[in-house]
Amino acid sequence: MNGFDLSVILTNPEFMSMLAHGIEATFIIYVGSWSLAMSLAILLLGIRFSPLPFGNRLVAAYVSYHRNVPTLVQLMLWYFGIFTLMPDWLTGWLTSHNAEVIFAIIGLGLCQAAYFSEDLRSGLRAVSPGQMEAAQALGHGYLSAMRFVIMPQGVRNALPPLINHSVSLFKNSSLALVIGAPELTHAIKEIENLSFRTFEIYLIGTLIYLFISLLIMAGGAYLSMRANPAVGGRA
């Protein structure tokens, strides 16, 4: 092996396009699973606060399963297990539409929804009950009090853990490698096999992951600053 030489990879158009495709797939998986997780988390929260019988326990069971089973095992159960139980027309459609990426989005999204809904719930619980009473005394209905008084405060409380879990969702998107999704880590391993420049390509991959993680953290810090005018942002 020759000395350290990044240009072998950076000037090779084939490797660069593989990297670009990897980043693209990672981005699709991340954005897809994040949106799925957030909408599902809000739905779970709604069920939890609704007067439905067993609603509370159902959500608790959902959260407990997704937090206590390793994410990798959940992905394997989806891709190697549930995928094979599906009817033929669905399997065919999924296979022709990049089933690995779709199952990565479903698996990661469902798992992350459990974390997001717990973050939101503890954020809401930290809002004092007096807030609701005061809002209702001022003439707000339940929903409008939720919308204008409780939710803004609850989400603000929940921001730090939500940001942390958004970063860990991004890192977990690399798990899609195991079910064969063509994401960034997959691209890195392939370039390594073709170029034998292990150190260089791992370094590039690490820097890309680090850069995006820091970007998400910085975005989160900006949001919390905006949401909390007392600390320094403008209202």
């Binding site: 970063v167 890192k171 977990n172 998107s173 690399s174 798990l175 490698l177 880590t185 890195i188 391993k189 791992y202 991959g205 690490t206 992951y209 680090l210 993680s213 820091l214 953290m217």
Partner: peptide
């Protein structure tokens, strides 16, 4: 800031 998988590869 880096996925555990990347650390394993390292």
């Amino acid at each position: 800031g880096v996925p555990l998988l990347m650390l394993i590869l390292w």
